[in-house]
Design a protein around this nucleic acid. Sequence first.
DNA 1: GATGAATGAGATTTCATTCAT
DNA 2: TATGAATGAAATCTCATTCAT
Lengths: 214, 214, 214, 214
Amino acid sequence: MARRVGRVSAARAKAVPDRRRAILDAAVRVFARQGFHACRVSDIADEAGVAYGLLYHYFPSKDEVLSTLFLERWGVMLEMIREVDSQSLPAREKLGAIASFIVDSYAHDPDLMKVIIVEVTRAANSFGQTHLSQIREAYKMIAEIVTKAQEDGVFKREIDAQFAAMAFYGAIEQVLTGWIFGLLPQGEEHFERAKQLVVETVCGGLETPAPVST
Amino acid sequence: MARRVGRVSAARAKAVPDRRRAILDAAVRVFARQGFHACRVSDIADEAGVAYGLLYHYFPSKDEVLSTLFLERWGVMLEMIREVDSQSLPAREKLGAIASFIVDSYAHDPDLMKVIIVEVTRAANSFGQTHLSQIREAYKMIAEIVTKAQEDGVFKREIDAQFAAMAFYGAIEQVLTGWIFGLLPQGEEHFERAKQLVVETVCGGLETPAPVST
Amino acid sequence: MARRVGRVSAARAKAVPDRRRAILDAAVRVFARQGFHACRVSDIADEAGVAYGLLYHYFPSKDEVLSTLFLERWGVMLEMIREVDSQSLPAREKLGAIASFIVDSYAHDPDLMKVIIVEVTRAANSFGQTHLSQIREAYKMIAEIVTKAQEDGVFKREIDAQFAAMAFYGAIEQVLTGWIFGLLPQGEEHFERAKQLVVETVCGGLETPAPVST
Amino acid sequence: MARRVGRVSAARAKAVPDRRRAILDAAVRVFARQGFHACRVSDIADEAGVAYGLLYHYFPSKDEVLSTLFLERWGVMLEMIREVDSQSLPAREKLGAIASFIVDSYAHDPDLMKVIIVEVTRAANSFGQTHLSQIREAYKMIAEIVTKAQEDGVFKREIDAQFAAMAFYGAIEQVLTGWIFGLLPQGEEHFERAKQLVVETVCGGLETPAPVST
DNA sequence: GATGAATGAGATTTCATTCAT
DNA sequence: TATGAATGAAATCTCATTCAT
């Protein structure tokens, strides 16, 4: 009966505020601001405007709130990479699509991306461990793109695909980190430029082409 | 070669065990194994084989132990980058020296590098914030190397130096993260290879040179 | 007479045990028995029959428990002195009313008065400092009673009012201290007698009236 | 050889600083400033300019330092009261001598008197308990003075001697407390005046003599 | 659904005291 | 004597989680 989808109930859904969603959204802001460990469950509840006991109606634990946030978003990303991968496009464009998606994700919801990166993908001792298989999946798919490009003779074969995938993803994530830390300038313009630069850097290299010697 | 002391005083130094050093070394192992937040001060003391009150004899807090560890090592790295920077070498070699230093650091003491990366440089909400100026210093010096290379016409001018520095550092750190997480194969051979590949990737690019069209 | 509530709500009030009050009451007993510094927060919780985390639900710190106790009771006393002061009574009766109130307070709840005196009014280095303004307020109002009596020609003018107020209050507090330490005999009879004696001593003096010389 | 008294060795005694004394003197300052419980043994040692281990050469514990301080000074006071008591003087003058001694003690070394009062005589839960017999001794001797005066018909018989002793001592101590807390003005002049006023208040009473009715 | 009082394990930190040198 | 490194018991406070209402 609950969660009915359809026009009428959709209207009703608006009338009945979705507390679960409110808690998740609040958690993003609080985790981004204070960090997962430094915040209390009651901080999230306060931000969401609910009693903190309610959080335990929707989630079994504080950990699960973060995990939910991560899995939701990471799932979308994996989906997207999978789709890109299945198309027949030049490797550079595939990597460009991935970079674009990640940068757009940050542009659209910087707090969420900050939380995912800081509290999960970069947290080797806690959630990074828990969600290792999900994280690894992304690297694997990127590596496959590289492998294919190498087979096509477009990418150098001497650079290990696994390795290249890490370098590529690391470069993007570091740029996001730069934004998160306030080390790189932000803004629509910079976001767009970053998408191109990261691909150009990793695919084309920083060096200017060697002049053709006669 | 470094840290050599006169024979006599070296013997004496052995006679008096350096508990402070023992605590720092133990902290590295414990932080690496359990994470800074998940470990207790007594875990460090146990690992060091001392009473945990002694930790407070040498450090004002648990935080300060980690900070000391970070600053010690990061200081050495900054010093090294500064030295490399001052020499007149091709940009690729300068970046290669930096990559080598970082990889060697990991090869030599993986726990320490894990701690520095996981608990400091990637911990945006805690120690990453505290030591931001130190971290930024490294990025800045790398960016200067890129800038110089651009002025020399060796590096492409369209890729912002700041941005390139982040991409370069991010690529290396991600590779270390791969080792830390067990996502990339480790071993002397792989470490050596990584030094070359990261430079080749970022400087030369993943793509094969475009065939000279006639 | 005070605090009477409607029958129904009074019954209801009983149904819901006031844990905050229980903690305060337990704290009085524990502070009196062991002293503020020598007791642990868990001693208070045990005495109150609650988990000690609950104490932190109601009070931000152990200090605040004592402060609450002091301010509650001291406030009542200041109120009472203020009221006495406002009436038109002979100075001796006003001081008598104050002495009576303090002695009655002790007779009614010796532990509470012990705590207030030992841990606050006589604790120059800790809570005595914190609550100095409240303590001073009592002395000030007593001094005003003396001043008025001096203006009326009832009290000697050569004894500074501030000074007289301290002597008067000091005499009473010392008597309570005698009871607290077990140096003076206690009991309803002694309490009643003390009320008169302290006033007689300070107002009338210890000396017998000089015989009228002819 | 040590502790030789006499002219020559006295000169030497100056040359060899008395560390035990230095520690006691430092303890007075530190206890007065921070309170017994709030200060650390190392604070005392720092103030005395010695290593804190040395304190344990001269005293078995921190407690013992305070006890030594108290017993030294309180012993002198008991001695003095005993002497005064043995003389044949009017009760008022005997009490005056006691008040003078106490006030002079404060004038001469306010820190020491603060420590004795705050940390011992008023500390019902700790040192007040430990040294109860010593403290009681003073009250007893004062009470004896009162008793004798009552037998001589100089003091009213209806005011219990024990009680009068407490009131008298309490009045003085409260005045000292006023100085300690900064509630009463200090200075040579005020100290002298206080000696008279406390006796006049307790012996003569605050009230003006009743006019002789015919 | 919603609330927030109640729980209690567990963490950091302090500091009196000991003792080898 | 004199030092201060070393010890470890103990205390306060936090906060995720439970559950009666």
